[in-house]
Amino acid sequence: MNDALQRRASLEPGAPEIAFAAFLRLVACLCLFFGVLYWIRLIGYYPGDLFRFDLMPVHWQIAASTLAVLFPFAAAGLWMLASWGPVIWFLCAAGEISMYAGFPQYFGYRPTVVAVHAAVAVIYCAFRVFIHLSKRKAVAP
């Protein structure tokens, strides 16, 4: 009976897993927000020059249309806690970091977006390492 209780307790998520799930869902909300912002640009609702698809340069058309599709897809994966959610978020983050930090002459320099993606990546890695170490410690005799 004691073994069955220990196995059941080991299958239930602990505080780090619950915090990690909350973090992923917060990132999902941010991804959905970013995706909506890209769709606003694409349909021309946002006032300003070059904020309509047919008026954008080709590099903006490619980047905006790709990220408008990938960000909501990443949001869905992160919200469902699917294993592919962080992968799609990583593609979006790498795309935006390369846009704003790698090609500022084309897309402008937005250090806030780069910093947010870097912070999310660091927090994600910290959570994964902490959860791995806590599970390893729990399994070790």
Rank of each mutant, 00 (worst) to 15 (best):
Y45Q: 06
G14L: 08
L24F: 03
R8D: 13
F71G: 00
A75E: 04
P13T: 11
L11H: 08
G48R: 10
A138H: 09
P16H: 05
K137T: 13
L11Q: 13
G102K: 10
A28H: 04
T66W: 04
G35D: 12
R25D: 06
S83A: 15
V114D: 02
M80H: 05
P13R: 13
Q105N: 12
W79T: 03
A22F: 07
A101I: 02
W39I: 08
L78T: 03
R52Q: 08
Q105S: 14
V113K: 05
G48Q: 07
W60A: 03
F103D: 07
V129Y: 06
S98E: 13
A21S: 15
L133H: 12
G48S: 12
H59E: 07
V27I: 14
I18D: 08
T66L: 14
V120A: 11
Y46Q: 11
I131C: 09
Y46D: 06
I40T: 14
V139T: 13
Y38G: 00
P47K: 12
F34Q: 02
A19I: 08
R128Y: 01
K137R: 15
P141M: 12
G102P: 05
F20W: 12
G48A: 10
P47H: 07
V87N: 07
F20D: 01
A74L: 08
V27W: 01
E17H: 09
K135C: 02
Y38H: 15
N2H: 11
D54W: 02
C92F: 07
A82W: 09
S98L: 15
I88F: 11
I43R: 11
F53A: 01
Y38A: 03
V58L: 15
Y106F: 14
A94Q: 05
S134L: 14
F53S: 00
E17I: 05
I131L: 14
A68V: 10
F130I: 09
E17S: 12
F53C: 00
A101D: 09
L133P: 01
Y38S: 06
A22S: 07
L67V: 07
R52Y: 00
